[in-house]
Design a binder for these strands. Structure first.
Lengths: 342, 342
DNA sequence: TTGAAAGCGGTACCAA
DNA sequence: TTGGTACCGCTTTCAA
């Protein structure tokens, strides 16, 4: 053996003493082939270590078994988790994932999309690249290519989109705090340009009003995802507004920073352990990007956006679209789950 | 327009009034074609929105421009970051990534590998699936397919592998602690079955000995990645061994838990802020999966394994292998970086 | 400088 | 129940 000879159906046909058509039929399990022949073909396949060439299949007009994913940034925990879930579910369908990172640049996105097309994907999923959705949606429609959007916030009508229910998440956690007796609830974290944050703020605000509680816009603070900045921000906030009894944090980093801030800013001396400051005065709740079993020592109530579940849902929806089971576009919204502080 | 007509070189040839061969030559920039013809062809390509079918190219014997990645679990920050870096660098090469998650199961791995083969990848990268390396290595060799391993720990000779220098990382951070005057340094975290941990422990231990410091095996504690468990573990440890002045943590979760443990177990009352317990008594250092700018409020010295850089290196090495620039197998070890406590 | 045609590895129609 | 064969879109000699 010198040059790696790739095994084709011709080799299999030869070894099994049948024609290529027969091998093809056995492979796809279509035409009725006699048991004996089937056996022989499968033996030959086994013996030769044949693997079917999907490119040839796809070229001939079949499915490639590949879904293209355009994700803004894989190193973000939310999108990593979503991608993991998607890949998991697709593999269960016998499909695979083609991965591209497309930043936030429109040109870049179009190039990614073209590359995916050239690879013959059966469908495309866009995770997070909100901006240029419309143009990509039209390109996909022109080619009759199933296109799904997965996003952290809603945008772009006329598209098949699956996303977390940010408003419900915020309502859920705000209501939880209220039920625990908190009347003065502040917000910490996120940038004002974030759509996700805007939707969450909507749910938070609406819930306050619903319970007849005050909404103070100066209780809503922006904050970078930095523990240090969060710690400073919460200290400032509580110094200026000592009556605030709960703080809702935009993400886990901010929540941790807030916790540090509470502890340091808390009492020096006084009775009880360090947690008492929290117990008696300020409760923390926070949105979590992923279910963080590891963060089990923080006195925080979490509300998590099920990124992995969104991935699974995307895979299922893509299957429908590919099989043309349901062509109508629709919005699918995945609810959040509450993990009360233990 | 009804059914999406895909544009092929035939259409382009027709529109430009030339033959398909000419179009092909223009596309690949090979044979000498007249400027005028080139212009017309490019115009036609532009006008029709032609995108070249890579499957056909690959079928004909060319490269597919796709690299297969088998990763154990994408939702682990280390592998997510590695994948992000890899994808980034590959895209700069005009290549793409085929993603599979292959758990730790050998069967599953072989199936993933076969799927990648059937898609006509130009090369395969295995990230973390240590176990079945040998059999996959042989299958790749038989097909003359470039195969790279990326791993958190060393294993499997006779393979092209790129990995972090766990021993050096541990030496680096241990030496740092010693230089800061610590003589009694404990270890917290990780499972004893972890190869990464074993290599790090080697570096830690070697450095202690090198400086003539004592190594106590009962100062090395296992711990799950849970803040709560880490907090309890460090409290126990320090209660039994009050002379320990620094603790090296296996990951950031353990580091955070340890910090909570220190604060709670610290003094109740006494002079100074809460940090004084740390300042005067116990220093923390920890391995970080990714550069965590967000964890900037912990008094911890970090040593980070550059996962993204490993991704970049993989892309570069794969390019070499594909171009046959260097066929010799080799180990490439990426050093860690120290981020001293601010 | 350009065109005609064979073939990559399958699939599927039409005969046998 | 099987076999022969024309494609799928592109590359690549070989001729013109």
């Amino acid at each position: 053996m010198s040059v790696a000879k790739k095994i084709t159906i011709n080799d299999v046909a030869l070894a099994a003493g049948v024609s290529v058509s027969t091998v093809s039929l056995v492979l796809s399990g279509k035409g009725r082939i006699s048991h004996a022949t089937g056996e022989r073909v499968n033996e030959a396949i086994e013996k030769l270590g044949f693997v079917r060439n999907r490119q040839a299949v796809s070229l001939r007009g079949g499915q490639s078994g590949v879904i293209g994913l355009m994700v803004r940034d894989l190193s973000s925990p939310f999108y990593a988790e979503l991608t993991a879930g998607l890949s998991e579910a697709l593999e269960a369908q016998g499909r695979m994932l083609f991965l591209t990172q497309c930043g936030r640049d429109a040109d870049q996105s179009e190039r990614c999309f073209a590359t995916l097309l050239s690879q013959g994907v059966d469908g495309v999923i866009i995770a997070g690249a909100a901006g240029e959705g419309a143009s990509l949606r039209d390109m996909a429609a022109a080619r009759q290519l199933p296109l799904l959007f997965a996003s952290r916030a809603s945008h772009l009508d006329e598209a098949d989109i699956i996303r977390p229910d940010n408003m419900q998440a915020a309502q859920l956690v705000t209501e939880h705090l209220i039920r625990r007796g908190h009347q003065r609830i502040a917000w910490l974290g996120g940038r004002s340009s974030s759509l996700t944050r805007a939707e969450r703020l909507g749910g938070y605000c609406a819930t306050l009003l619903q319970y007849g509680l005050p909404f103070h816009s100066d209780w809503v603070l922006e904050c970078e995802p930095s523990q240090k900045q969060a710690a400073e921000a919460i200290s400032d906030l509580l110094r200026r507004n000592p009556t605030i009894s709960a703080v809702l944090c935009h993400n886990s980093t901010v929540a941790m920073g807030a916790w540090f801030g509470l502890m340091r800013g808390g009492r020096q001396g006084g009775e009880g352990g360090m947690e008492s400051y929290y117990d008696r005065q300020v409760a923390l709740a926070a949105f979590a990007e992923v279910p963080e079993a590891a963060l089990d020592d923080l006195p925080v109530t979490w509300v998590t956006t099920p990124a992995r579940e969104i991935g699974h849902t995307l895979a299922g929806r893509m299957l429908q679209r590919i099989n043309q089971e349901e062509d109508a576009l629709r919005h699918q919204i995945i609810p959040a789950r509450l993990v009360p502080q233990r």
